[in-house]
């Protein structure tokens, strides 16, 4: 009887410890989140000003904004999404509609998932070797290419997942009416999976808007900005790269610009992920 009570006590103690530790783990995660977002708000909000969007990055010791970096980031991201989305959409369609169980599909799926989590700095080295070395200089095109390579696997993965959720009955019904397969895909399955595919593209935009490593040796950076058509052919500033170089420098003015940039990026990324989540939920209900 005594022994049993000891056993019971030990089990109860183990259980309480387990519950306390699990709650502690959740608190641990939440504390970091508030710690990071809090720090970002404190240092970022005080650095916000309208001139961020109107003036270009200043030389050390003077005031300025981030206009050229914001413009560069937007331009390169738009090109990356414009090129990467169709490629990812078609590749994802191939996996889900044409070759679901084929050997080639298995390999493509496997490689795509590796690319999805591969270190982005390696993508930067790849584009450096492929474009920068050949062109002989850093350029906005190279930066956009590096971002494209990051967009493609994200879109492939979500497109395939979303297309697989489309019930086969829809495809069969359309085929039975005599529609050719490409028509079935374009007008039936893509339409049915539209919200999910858009979610994937939003997630891809969120992913590349904070990417720094692959831009460092492709687009490099540029303290100026020209609206000429050849701007893409020159080194181009981007928000993350500016944050990196300003934050690691010794100047106080540049630090506060880096904080403002960090706040802008985080706000963009979080807004995009929340938007993606809302879209996803709308689809489910």
């Amino acid at each position: 009887m005594v022994l049993n009570r000891a056993l019971y006590l030990r089990r109860r103690l183990a259980n309480i410890t387990f519950i306390v530790l699990s709650v502690g783990a959740a608190l641990f995660g939440l504390i970091w989140l508030t710690f990071i977002l809090g720090g970002l708000l404190v240092d970022g909000v005080s650095a916000l000003s309208p001139t961020l969007f109107t003036e270009i990055t200043p030389p050390p010791g003077s005031k300025g904004g981030l206009a050229n970096a914001i413009g560069g980031s937007i331009l390169m991201s738009v090109i990356a999404v414009a090129v990467g989305t169709p490629v990812g959409l078609f590749a994802g369609t191939y996996l889900a509609e044409y070759a679901r169980h084929g050997k080639l599909a298995f390999v493509v799926r496997f490689v795509n998932d590796i690319l999805l989590s591969a270190p982005s700095i390696v993508i930067g080295l790849f584009i450096y070797e492929l474009l920068v070395v050949r062109m002989g200089h850093f350029s906005g095109w190279a930066g956009a290419a590096a971002l494209t390579v990051i967009v493609i696997p994200v879109v492939v993965r979500t497109t395939e997942n979303m297309l697989l959720l489309v019930p086969n009955g829809l495809r069969e019904a359309a085929s039975a009416l005599g529609a050719p397969q490409n028509f079935v895909i374009k007008s039936v399955t893509w339409k049915a999976a539209r919200a999910g595919i858009i979610t994937g593209v939003l997630l891809a935009v969120a992913r590349i808007s904070g990417e720094t490593a692959p831009l460092l040796f492709t687009a490099l950076g540029n303290s100026g900005w020209s609206w000429s058509p050849s701007a893409m052919n020159e080194p181009m500033a981007s928000l993350p790269a500016v944050i990196y170089s300003f934050a690691t420098g010794p100047y106080e003015d540049q630090h506060s610009l880096a904080w403002a940039g960090a706040l802008l990026i985080t706000a963009t990324v979080l807004a995009l992920s929340i938007l993606a989540r809302i879209l996803e939920n709308q689809k489910r209900t």
Binding site: G29, L33, L40, D43, G210, E211, A247, I265, L270
Partner: peptide
């Protein structure tokens, strides 16, 4: 909230880690 931690870009962790 925990998933948001995954959404925060790497460079934000960097600048926060370095200064704060």
């Amino acid at each position: 909230a925990v998933e948001l931690l995954a959404g925060i870009p790497s460079i934000i962790y960097g600048i926060w880690g370095f200064f704060v």
